[in-house]
């Protein structure tokens, strides 16, 4: 073997290995040192500005302008740090405090940066911008988000639809409902969650969506109709128990657990007796209904398969005996 391997080549290999090892060790140390320095700097800025941000959050109306002026008067690094801190805080803060924080973010100059990022050529930056637009809600955010919801990149569309959940405007609701469609590229849970956030403002659209030709839209609407207690949707939900798509039927059952309808019992018993996962879901829905309605239906499930009986809360035969 050594005949085929000149000593020079071996030396070269050893040298390469040593250099690679050294390079990686240096990289390790550099990464850690840089990160620590950055964290230290953040902690320092936090210590300096935390009080100002918190004071702004709880300030009286007449005190706020002065505090915001103080934010505007800070250097670039401090304002960037405050903008970032506020952005993170808005994830957990709601109500009046969140409105104040948004004003602090505006004073820190975050809004123009976010607006510019919404048109960035990088999809990741556009998605970041969509997230920030939802949280900060600066002027013109709705229009930008509606545009981002049509982005060519599905990731950007997803974040934009999620962010639209912060807006109760008719256009926002309509766009989110469209995002429930099977080919929208937006996960249905994201769109459904956004509609839930829009709350009562979405009710009319959700009721109409229960009849949409797209199965994805029907499924999403059926899933949240019960959670939103959409007025006038009960009959539609009962009708959806006969939908061609199993996922739509399952979604309708989940909603009927929260909006019990007596007319649903008959089709639900039929589905439950057919068994399987859908049968179990039907049994759960029956069991969740008022006992004075569900008692005869539960009796009808006595001969159902064990999984269905369990879902309906029926006792084991030996236990019942």
């Amino acid at each position: 073997m050594s005949e085929l391997l000149p000593p020079e080549l071996l030396r070269l290999l050893l040298l390469a290995a040593a250099l690679a090892t050294l390079a990686m060790l240096v990289t390790l140390l550099a990464q850690r040192t840089t990160r620590r320095r950055r964290e230290r700097r953040r902690a320092e800025l936090d210590a300096i500005h935390r009080r100002l941000v918190l004071e702004s959050t709880i300030a009286e109306d007449d005190e706020l302008p002065a505090l915001l002026d103080r934010v505007r008067g800070l250097d670039d690094a401090s304002r960037a740090h405050i903008g970032r801190s506020v952005f993170m805080m808005l994830q957990d803060v709601t109500g009046e405090a969140a409105d104040r924080l948004r004003q602090v973010a505006a004073a820190s100059g975050l809004a123009p940066r976010v607006t510019a990022a919404a048109r960035h050529r990088s999809a990741v930056r556009r998605a970041d911008a969509a997230e920030a637009l939802g949280r900060l809600a600066p002027e013109g955010a709705l229009e930008l988000l509606l545009a981002l919801a049509e982005d060519r990149d599905p990731e950007v569309r997803t974040v934009a639809v999620r962010a639209l959940g912060e807006f109760e405007h008719e256009a926002a609701v309509a766009r989110v409902v469209r995002a429930l469609a099977e080919d929208s590229g937006v996960p249905s849970t994201v769109a459904a969650t956004a509609l839930l956030q829009q709350g009562g403002a979405a009710s009319d659209r959700v009721r109409l969506a229960l009849r949409d030709p797209d199965a994805g839209i029907r499924r999403g609407a059926a899933r949240i109709a019960g959670l939103l207690q959409v007025p006038g949707s009960a009959d539609e939900l009962v009708a959806l128990l006969h939908d061609d798509h199993e996922s739509v039927r399952l979604a309708a059952m989940r909603s009927l657990e929260r909006m019990p309808v007596r007319e649903a019992l008959e089709p639900l018993v039929g589905i439950a007796l057919a068994g399987g996962t859908t049968g179990e879901a039907a049994a759960r829905t029956i069991a969740s209904m008022p006992s004075e309605w569900s008692a005869p239906a539960l009796d009808a499930l006595d001969g159902a398969e064990p999984g269905v009986r369990r879902a309906a809360g029926l006792k084991r035969r030996e236990a019942a005996a």
């Binding site: 073997m1 050594s2 391997l5 000593p7 071996l10 290999l13 050893l14 290995a17 690679a20 090892t21 990686m24 060790l25 990289t27 390790l28 990464q31 850690r32 990160r35």
Partner: peptide
């Protein structure tokens, strides 16, 4: 010399690969 070469490509190279994994961990989740 041949034995050293085998050692190098098996354990030496393997150690470098593992070190690379540590570098990636440090850069990502640390």
């Amino acid at each position: 010399v041949a034995a050293l070469l085998l050692l190098l490509v098996s354990y030496g190279y393997g150690t470098i690969v593992t070190l690379a994994a540590v570098v990636v961990e440090e850069a990502s989740f640390h």
